[in-house]
Amino acid sequence: MLTQDIRQSAPVTPTQAGTVATLMIEEETTISDAPLFVPEDIGAGLLLLGLLLSPKPPKER
């Protein structure tokens, strides 16, 4: 068995072990970066003259 050939390594600290666990488990990102209104959308909105129930552009985004 290969396991018998293993060289000795320094023991790892709890923080190091925890880092391995974190990188294995990888939670999803906490903050969503979903698409939002961009000023360019105003141009598209103007093309939709009179589109009822189209959104009103938010201020200063």
Binding site: R7, A17, G18, A21
Partner: peptide, 25 residues
């Protein structure tokens, strides 16, 4: 050999994962 050493350096029971995530490991 490196794979075996990686496991011996970080054995499963030392990774300190929480009960909510240990099963994933």
């Amino acid at each position: 050999e490196a794979a075996a050493r990686a496991f011996s350096l970080f054995p499963p029971d030392t990774l300190g994962a929480s009960p909510e995530t240990a099963w994933i490991i």
